[in-house]
């Protein structure tokens, strides 16, 4: 079986961690070809991912901003050679792969967390309250893989890089602007440690307490939906059912009650610490170490003592 893996490219650079995690899942299915819709330099990085047979690169202005219509057309133009078309379950791939699937008249398997065999996959449903095993009867399987459940493939390979023929710009949509926050912190979905704040943090200014602890630990910063909705934190920090799914070595939840929609995004973390002033907060039911305390006292002290 042959697998086409759509690489995650952001601002012209390969998102190596996400792509290498999807490569681990893809390798269970067959020979992996990575498709990089972006610069040759990004394809060269993809070529280092171990176990990859080949890298295809389509360098064209039509793909520069991840527009779904153009990317889907490109993937579909190559689809005939593959039994599986896969990608990491990023916002970008979740935008593109369902479109690819519909163009091929097949279902998409979103957010797969396990590979049983070439037709059969596991995926969480109901905010992770149930895990379904689904068997596909489609000729081509189109799958996004949940990155938090696969380890990244090593990077000691040197696959050949070949050019793929670019498809025409569909003209259906166009790029206007990006508002991307620059940060020196590790990325949320690949960080070893994540410190997240919730509504309990109270304000955007107070979120500095969360950020200070994160910086002390070299951690990424996350947030609950309530914290994002209240404007304490940007949207791309949201962890949960409808935000990012993380599984770091250490997740520290501060002023977060632990609604199932939040747990859906972090309950596979290796160690969970919760700091909350309400000893009944549901977050304590999943926490390895719970501290019942006022975060405004506990956080500065913790940051100090680490």
């Amino acid at each position: 079986m042959a697998v086409l893996l759509l690489a995650e490219v952001s601002a012209g650079e390969l998102a190596l961690d996400a792509t290498a995690k999807a490569a681990t899942a893809a390798a269970k299915l067959g020979d992996v070809t990575i498709l990089v819709a972006g610069p040759k330099a990004a394809a060269d990085v993809a070529a280092t991912i171990s176990g990859v047979a080949k890298v295809l690169v389509a360098e064209d202005a039509a793909y520069a901003n991840g527009l779904a219509e153009n990317l889907a057309d490109l993937v579909v133009s190559l689809a005939g050679d593959y039994s599986h078309i896969v990608a990491p379950a990023t916002a970008s791939a979740k935008n593109v792969l369902p479109r690819v699937a519909a163009l091929l008249d097949v279902m998409v398997i979103s957010d797969a967390s396990g590979v049983v065999d070439g037709d059969t996959f596991e995926r969480p449903v109901y905010a992770g309250n149930a895990v379904q095993t689904v068997k596909s009867s489609d000729a081509t399987k189109v799958i996004t893989f949940r990155t938090s459940t696969f380890d990244a493939a090593a990077c000691s390979g040197s696959a050949p890089v070949e050019a793929a023929t670019a498809t025409a710009d569909s003209g259906l949509s166009s790029f206007v602007a990006d508002k991307v926050a620059e940060s020196d912190r590790p990325e949320l979905t690949s960080a070893k440690v994540v410190v997240s704040g919730g509504r309990g943090v109270g304000s955007e200014e107070n979120f500095a307490l969360i950020e200070k602890l994160a910086d002390k630990l070299g951690a990424a910063v996350g947030a609950s939906r309530a914290a994002v909705d209240s404007g304490f934190a940007p949207n791309d920090w949201q962890v949960g059912q409808t935000g990012k799914v993380v599984a770091p070595e250490l997740y520290i939840a501060v002023g977060i009650s632990g609604a199932i929609q939040h747990l859906a995004g972090m309950k596979d973390s290796k160690v969970i610490v919760a700091i909350n002033k309400d000893e009944e907060a549901p977050i304590f039911q999943v926490a390895d170490f719970g501290l019942v305390a006022d975060l405004f006292e506990a956080l500065p002290e913790l940051t100090d003592k680490l």
Binding site: M107, V131, L250, F284, L291, E301, L302, K305
Partner: peptide
Amino acid sequence: PRLTVVSTAEPAGRSAGIKVGSVDELVAKL
């Protein structure tokens, strides 16, 4: 359906750990 649901299972459970009494204790555990 193109996807047949073979089975639906409870996710791997996670049980509550311990409560620590102070920041010092938390630091020690970590």
